[in-house]
Amino acid sequence: MDKLINDFSVGLFFWQTLVFVTLILVLRRFAWKPILNAVNEREESIEGALKAAEKAREEMASLQASNEAIMKEAREERERILKEARDMKNSIVAEAKESAVAEAEKTIAAAKATIESEKAAAIAELKNQAATLSIEVAEKVLGQELSTKNKQAEMISKMIDEVKIN
């Protein structure tokens, strides 16, 4: 301890304190503040850049997700439209078939009816003509043979019977 006190130099202490305090003040102004500020600024910019990158990545991901959703929707829409079209086609075809069948049936029925009526008319006419013809024939035949009333009646009923059979 004695040696320590003996070694202690007031002059050295004075200069050390003076120089050191000056050094702190000077370095604070010209070195530490600018350096620490620059380091801070850089750290902040790095952090900012990292955050921006992270944000961009997130945006990208969400964009991709929304893209996919849109795609999916579009695909569904297409399916739906296609299905609708298919259904419509089917129903149209079915309807057309149905109406065609109905029309055909109607036409056939009409044709049948016409045929029937024509046939009836034809038969009637044929009958009439046959009757007329037979009457004419009969007239001619009868003109010669059926001079008597009995014979005539006999002849007529015989003919009617024949006709009925017919």
Partner: peptide
Amino acid sequence: AIFMFFLFSGIA
């Protein structure tokens, strides 16, 4: 002190 001044102000 002079050395430190030039060194660190140079870095700054």
